[in-house]
């Protein structure tokens, strides 16, 4: 299984800074090709949110480059990944919190990171960015750690009400604010000819899942160019529909390389 990866971001129609950060890496390892991608939606006054999101993205990318290889001498397990990533979050949570305290500001960030190996995907997730799997249909892989999501689970709000609720951007978990972060983890088997997408909440409020399917279904994601174009079209739609947030999306297409 091989990967194509592409990403796009837009500051949006209202904000002056883009506080989203993301990064991805295709890794050639002893256990075959792997794909690592991470996306963070930062928050905090002025350009502080960017500091938080970039800090975390860099930390995770550095982990993928420097530490992952060492773990591959033995078969990778869910527990190993969990321990590694939770430690990374703890360390950076403290670091961002300390920075915020020094500067007298509140800053924080969401986190959604995915590692896809030849036979398993691993996701760690904090906040309300999302990961999706798109094949014949679209499947959400992550659960929002947000106030409205909790209200939906408790039956106090419907999905539609939640989208209009003024508290829709209020998170229950994020990195850099609380003393302890409680990330969610997801594991599963990755499919070939499938699109894995992670995005900030700005990318998904104004477009429907049907529209996401329409543009991001695997047959329409042939190469980096077409992927980029499709994502940009959706970003454009979001802006036309008056989304005010920063908008970021990263897609990974899995495929079987043709053997000559």
């Amino acid at each position: 299984m091989d990967f194509i990866v592409s990403a796009s971001t837009d500051v949006g129609i209202k904000k002056t800074t883009n506080q989203d950060s993301y990064g991805a890496k295709i890794l050639h390892t002893a256990q075959g090709k792997m794909l690592f991608a991470v996306l963070c939606d930062g928050m905090g006054g002025l350009s502080m949110g960017e500091v938080a999101s970039a800090t975390l993205v860099h930390a995770f990318l550095k982990w993928a480059e420097d530490s992952l290889e060492g773990l591959l001498e033995e078969p990778l397990t869910d527990d190993v990944i969990r321990a590694e990533w939770e430690a990374l979050i703890r360390e950076n949570n403290d670091k961002i919190k300390r920075y915020g305290k020094e500067k007298g500001v509140n800053l924080g960030t969401t986190l959604t990171a995915i590692l896809i190996t030849q036979d398993r995907y691993y996701i760690i997730h904090v906040g309300d960015s999302r990961a999706y799997e798109i094949r014949h249909s679209l499947r959400r892989l992550t659960e929002d750690q947000s106030l409205v999501a909790r209200e939906i689970r408790r039956g106090n709000l419907t999905e539609e009400e939640a989208e209009r609720d003024p508290r829709r951007s209020v998170l229950l978990q994020c990195v850099g604010v609380l003393d302890t972060v409680e990330p969610l983890m997801y594991f599963g088997k990755p499919y070939t000819n499938t699109v894995y997408m992670i995005c900030s909440d700005g990318f998904r409020h104004q477009v429907s899942e049907l529209e996401l399917m329409d543009y991001l279904a695997p047959p329409k994601m042939l190469d980096e160019d077409s992927m980029q174009k499709n994502m940009n079209r959706l970003i454009q739609m979001n802006k036309e529909r008056q989304e005010t947030d920063n908008i970021s999306v990263l897609t990974i297409k899995t495929y079987e390389p043709q053997v000559l």
Binding site: D41, M43, N106, T110, G127, L147, S169, V170, D201, D245
Partner: peptide, 11 residues
């Protein structure tokens, strides 16, 4: 202004 993404712990 809580239109932007915010973490509950900060507000």
């Amino acid at each position: 202004n809580i239109a932007d993404t915010t973490c509950l712990g900060t507000i």
